[in-house]
Amino acid sequence: MSNQDYYVPHGTYWPIIGSIGISTLFVGFANLLHDVSWGGPVMGLGGTIVVFMLFGWLGTVVNESVGGIYNKQVDRSFRWGMSWFIFSEVMFFAAFFGALFYARVLSVPWLGGAGNNLFTPELWEGFKAAWPLVSTPGAIGQNGTEFSVGFELVDAWGLPALNTALLLSSGVTITYAHHALRNGHRNALIAWMVATIALGVLFLGFQITEYGHAYHEGLRLTSGVYGSTFYLLTGFHGFHVTVGAIMLTVILYRIQKGHFSSENHFAFEGVAWYWHFVDVVWLGLFIFVYWL
């Protein structure tokens, strides 16, 4: 601790570029939602700016890291930053899991007359409160949504189980990659990384297939609260798998370039943890959506 050199970076353009990009993206998206013709292109432009910013900003950081400018303290700051960012992601998912549990345990039974809601069933004739909720109480929502009713439930032994197996295997392979990295087995490391990314991509492929299948069977975003929680939970999970796979690819590229040593590989650790986290979220999803 006695030899503590502080590091303070110089000014940077990347944040303001990021702000412009992300605002453009959102303004475009909001306009797209209201059928404004330029909404889509503007949203695309914003997305491009964000990607450009990410490459530029992270590229700068990687260059500085490889250039040996950083010290242990900067490394620790990154660790704190990444850890708490991931924790905020956990809380984001918690909101959706909370909605799932609330609907299942409280509000759907209440709609069926549980608790002190004696008269609720009188509002909707023939409505049966059960989970999964295959039929909605009303046919048309407050804002005019026509609910898609009577869907077939996705079979847990079909694609979902296969996908779980795939994602868990990718968890195993990244653990082997981690092991190889720590022991300096470079070729094994690269092989396990490739396997992890391949399994992740395969998972995404099957997930898209499953969406197609579920949609065909009538399970849609408009299928009431079951469809809402199902698609938003799996959708945000799929988005995180996509991001994780992209990050793993970048890490693979950096491994090829020889950026990591068996002692010093925080970027790998951060991404590996992220991948394990996404894996656990899926396990929770699989169990709570398909089983319990």
Binding site: K72, D75, R76, R79, W80, M82, S83, L168, G171, V172, T175, H178, H179, R182, E263, F266, E269, G270, A272, W273, H276, D279, V280
Partner: peptide
């Protein structure tokens, strides 16, 4: 991971192995 260094790195790897 937060702790870093050889010890933290060990702890991280072992915990992840347990979890998978």
């Amino acid at each position: 991971m937060l702790r870093g260094g050889a010890k933290g790195s060990d702890k991280m790897f072992k915990s992840l192995r347990t979890r998978i």
